[in-house]
């Protein structure tokens, strides 16, 4: 299964069902972030239901605190 994250191709070796699983897989679950899935901005409570399919595009922006 291949998806795009922030413009880069990502090959997923194990099957990923939901956006929540994807975040876990990408090691991003601790971050506070906003996700655009195929050009639609997701609300937090949609992470669990949103299904990931081959060829999907994601833009992920996480908040950082440094300055």
């Amino acid at each position: 299964m291949k998806i795009r994250v922030n413009g880069e191709g990502v090959q997923l070796k194990q099957p990923i069902q939901t956006v929540e699983e994807l975040l876990h897989h990408l090691n991003l679950e601790k971050k506070s972030l906003i996700i655009e899935h195929n050009h639609i901005i997701l609300k937090k409570d949609q992470h669990r239901e949103s299904q990931v399919s081959d060829g999907d595009q994601f833009e992920i922006v996480h908040f950082v605190g440094g300055g």
Binding site: I34, I41, I60
Partner: peptide, 20 residues
Amino acid sequence: KLIAFDLWKNQQMELKVATL
């Protein structure tokens, strides 16, 4: 927009977050 970038990874993200 919520704008983010990673200069080292050559990435630029712009999200229209008005719906949030």
